[in-house]
Amino acid sequence: MINKIKIIVIIALCMVSCTTIVESQVVKLVDNQLFVNESPYFIKGICYHPVPKGSNQRSFYNLTNDLALMVEAGINTIRVYEPIDDVKVLDEINEAGIKVIIGFGYNQNGNFDILSGSFINYIEKYKNHKAILFWELGNEYNYHPEWFENDIKNWYTSLNNAADSIHKMDTNHPVATAHGELPENLALTICLNIDIWGINVYRWDNPESLFSEWKKVSKKPLYLSEAGADSYMTISKDRFEQGNNQDAQAAATKNILQAIFNSKESTLGVTLFSFTDGWWKAGENDVQNPGGWAPNSSGVPYDGIPNEEYWGIVDLGRNKKKAFDVVKQVYTKTN
């Protein structure tokens, strides 16, 4: 009887331990290529900030349907602009076979931000989660020196220090930043702890020139953290008519992705902007408005104007736009 009790206890302890074991994952850079557990990984991604109609706040209420659409389109990576502090959401993303680039803001009122240092608490909490691809600090902050006492050097110093703190805590994931256009020498000189440079680039419908320019200034890997086009033409131009125009978005998306995938040896990939439309950006959040503003955005195809609420490859009802089929065609046919 005692032996039976011992056996039962041992089995129970084993069951408990088995449920708490976290399978570690190593994401690393080798010769400027990304590897996940020794397998090469090319980012076929999408920027993902789902805000419902009538709201200004991100919500994962439609996550299951969104992931199904992403899988259909061949998307393997989503880039988020703020941390996902919900293990169930991360679990579901992982189960869909998709990985996440987790972005941290500078000042988020102490909510996992860089200014307070609380971002490190998030990394400690989730660094072993299999959904994580890498960490990313900031998004186009180089356009906003006013946030840093009108001295952008303050941001670069904070960025470099934050990356150093992450490296000391987590040796299994690289650290990136998302920079607006090609970084200047000041950024590259100060931010030596950045492993991957994400670049938000809008150069009409062909970002190809970025790759040769990058090779002249840095030997580190890069990926396109934002690229793409919206589905609204403020003016008629380049054979595309004014107004809602999915053809313009689809044509630009095709050209942009082809340029990137034709230069796979020069980049880690792309997170196309964006998965859903964002009705919260340019006016009342319960209607879709043309207009909006983004810094250094005159290169948005094909009207040179970023209509901020029309960037999705699906609309808020998750109806596929023509650009969705373009993404699907490119992503699913590329190994």
Rank of each mutant, 00 (worst) to 15 (best):
M1W: 12
I2H: 08
N3Q: 06
I7V: 15
I7L: 15
V9R: 06
I10F: 13
T19H: 04
T20N: 14
D31H: 14
D31S: 08
N32Y: 03
E38K: 08
I46Q: 06
Y48M: 14
P50E: 02
N65K: 08
A68S: 06
E72S: 09
G74Y: 08
I75L: 06
N76I: 09
V80D: 01
L90D: 13
G97E: 12
G97Q: 14
K99E: 07
V100C: 05
I101T: 09
G103T: 00
F104T: 07
F104A: 02
I123K: 02
I123H: 11
N128D: 15
H129W: 06
H129I: 06
H129N: 13
K130H: 13
A131D: 03
W135N: 07
E136D: 15
D151F: 01
L159P: 06
L159R: 01
N160Y: 03
A162R: 10
D164Q: 03
S165T: 07
H167T: 02
M169A: 05
P174F: 00
T177V: 09
E181M: 10
N185T: 15
T189K: 13
C191S: 13
D195T: 04
W197K: 11
N200Q: 11
N206K: 10
N206W: 11
N206Y: 09
E208F: 07
F211Q: 01
P221M: 10
P221Y: 10
S225Q: 12
S231Y: 01
S231T: 00
M233Q: 11
K237L: 07
R239S: 15
Q242E: 13
Q246H: 06
A259D: 01
F273H: 01
G278Y: 00
A282P: 11
D286Y: 05
G292T: 01
W293M: 14
N296D: 14
V300Y: 01
E308H: 04
Y310H: 09
V314N: 03
L316H: 03
N319G: 13
K321W: 05
K321G: 02
V327D: 05
T332Y: 07
N335P: 07
